[in-house]
Amino acid sequence: MSASLLEIVDLGDGEIVLQHADDDSEPLVTIRFSDESRMYMMENSLEVAKAMIQAGIQAVAVLAEQGEAEAEASPESPRILH
């Protein structure tokens, strides 16, 4: 994935998206909050979405590190995904 500027946009209908700032492509991530959850969060749904996106990015980084470590530990064994 090429480096580009990303933005988090609150669409105002309970949906918050992470998208490329410089084009009109499909959002990378969509978070949709129900009316009930938006009432519970009051005006903080954007902050919650930011935290969710950050946690997802951190999880991907950890998984990537684990995958690299496994690849270094056994470079000759094939990886099989069922």
Rank of each mutant, 00 (worst) to 15 (best):
S34W: 09
V48E: 14
L46R: 03
M52N: 00
A51Y: 07
M39K: 15
V62I: 08
G56Y: 06
E47Q: 08
G56D: 05
K50L: 08
I31Y: 06
M39E: 15
A59T: 10
L63P: 05
N44R: 14
V60M: 09
I57W: 08
M42G: 02
A59G: 13
R38I: 01
L63E: 14
V48A: 15
L63T: 08
A55P: 01
M39H: 12
M42D: 05
A49I: 00
G56N: 08
N44M: 11
A61C: 12
K50Y: 06
T30Y: 05
S45E: 10
A61G: 10
E43P: 00
M39G: 11
A51M: 12
G56S: 10
S45N: 10
A61S: 13
M42E: 07
K50R: 15
S37C: 11
E36Y: 05
M41A: 07
D35E: 11
Q54K: 15
R32I: 04
M41L: 15
I53E: 00
M42L: 08
M42T: 02
A61W: 08
D35M: 04
A51K: 15
Y40K: 06
T30L: 11
S34K: 10
I57D: 09
S34C: 09
A61Q: 15
A49Y: 00
L46Y: 03
M42S: 04
L63G: 13
R38V: 00
I53N: 02
D35T: 01
V60C: 07
A59M: 14
V48H: 12
I53C: 00
K50C: 07
Q58A: 12
A61L: 13
A49K: 03
K50H: 07
R32Y: 04
S45G: 03
A59D: 15
E47A: 06
V60S: 07
M42I: 03
E47G: 03
D35K: 11
E43Y: 09
Y40H: 01
V48T: 08
I53L: 02
A59H: 14
Q54V: 10
I31M: 09
N44V: 01
K50I: 01
Y40N: 01
V62G: 00
R32M: 09
G56L: 08
M39P: 02
E47D: 07
E43C: 06
I57N: 08
M42F: 03
V62A: 07
S34G: 12
S34I: 06
E36S: 08
M52R: 01
T30F: 05
T30N: 11
R38A: 01
L46K: 04
E43R: 13
A59L: 15
A51R: 14
A49L: 04
V60Y: 05
V60F: 05
A61K: 15
I57S: 10
N44G: 05
E47S: 06
A61R: 13
V48Y: 13
F33Q: 04
L63F: 08
A51H: 11
V48M: 13
Q54H: 13
V62L: 11
N44D: 11
M39R: 15
T30S: 14
A51P: 06
D35H: 04
E47H: 02
A61H: 13
T30G: 08
V62F: 01
A49S: 03
Q58I: 00
S45L: 03
R38S: 02
Q58V: 00
M39C: 11
Q54L: 14
